[in-house]
Design a protein around this nucleic acid. Sequence first.
DNA 1: TGAGTGATTGACT
DNA 2: GTCAATCACTCAT
Length: 194
Amino acid sequence: MEIDLSDAVAAARLLIGKKLVHDSLEGRTAGYIVETEAYTMDDPASHTFCGKTPRNAPMFGPAGTIYVYFTYGMHYCMNIVCGPEGYGQAVLIRALQPVEGIRLMQKRRSVSDPLRLTNGPGKLTQAMGIHSKHNNTNISSGPIRLEKGISTSKILSSARIGITRATELPWRFYIKDNAFVSKQASSRTIIQPE
DNA sequence: TGAGTGATTGACT
DNA sequence: GTCAATCACTCAT
């Protein structure tokens, strides 16, 4: 799966519709990416804004590195690192549309409603079985990969969610009207020209 | 060494 | 609508 990860904001848009696959010992789970957010080093909301630390070091790795971090004491979030090595930008995967291994996702999440399996950054990592041991692995060599997905023209952007800094940047991308997006369109939504 | 914070979620009012 | 859960990290003693 070739994808241009040289720029996080552009990559966040390119990743919409791609298929995220995880082959684990329990089985395979996969889903289409329906919502992403971009974070760069110039971005006050990014973990890398204040420089490199042991926690965010994977974000300074080569493009395609997977950065999994633990937050709020109980949730993992998954990012795909972008840009040149040493720069520190990434795309947060916020929501998926389940495609394969839905029964395994339901078991991992203890939830049966497919709409609620992967419609949030903490939910999708749980459903896909992604946690800290996958931190600093790479999408081209590890058990987590990207595959060709669906093409969609209905991509919107909006302000990002759940952050307190740089909330004005429209660096959240999602598929219009998709039922698996974590939060539906707000009044700040902007339509992206093709 | 300890307080404050957070790219969240789910339970409860 | 509010709020607790709970931990890695940062920053200030």
